[in-house]
């Protein structure tokens, strides 16, 4: 069974700010089931910008992305890619 969660590090300068949160939310809204972002003990719905912002993720924060169902693997991978490329803000 494939892993349903992935750890990522926030690399963009401003952290998870409105623009990057909007990108995550847009992707997560396409999922069949819930997509979660977990930081420390807090777990929020990735389809909500406002929820994501409440995590207050600064640059360098370590977070976990989690999906509830196999069918959303592509969504998970896509989200991880966004994190790894700094939400396209670096290129």
């Amino acid at each position: 069974m494939t892993e349903l969660s992935r750890d990522v590090i926030v690399i963009n300068e401003l952290g998870l700010h409105a623009r990057s949160a909007a990108k995550i939310a847009e992707i997560a809204r396409k999922a069949n089931y819930n997509v979660w972002i977990i930081k420390d003990t807090k777990k929020v719905d990735a389809s909500s910008i406002l929820d994501i912002l409440t995590l207050e993720c600064a640059k360098g924060s370590k977070i976990t992305l989690k999906i509830d169902d196999q069918s959303d693997l592509e969504i998970l991978n896509n989200t991880v890619r966004q994190f790894e490329t700094g939400f396209g803000e670096l290129s």
Partner: peptide, 16 residues
């Protein structure tokens, strides 16, 4: 205009 794109996504944010 990216800030407006963000506002667009915010319109349908579940918390709002």
């Amino acid at each position: 205009t990216y800030i407006l794109e963000t506002h667009k996504v915010l319109l349908k944010d579940k918390m709002l």
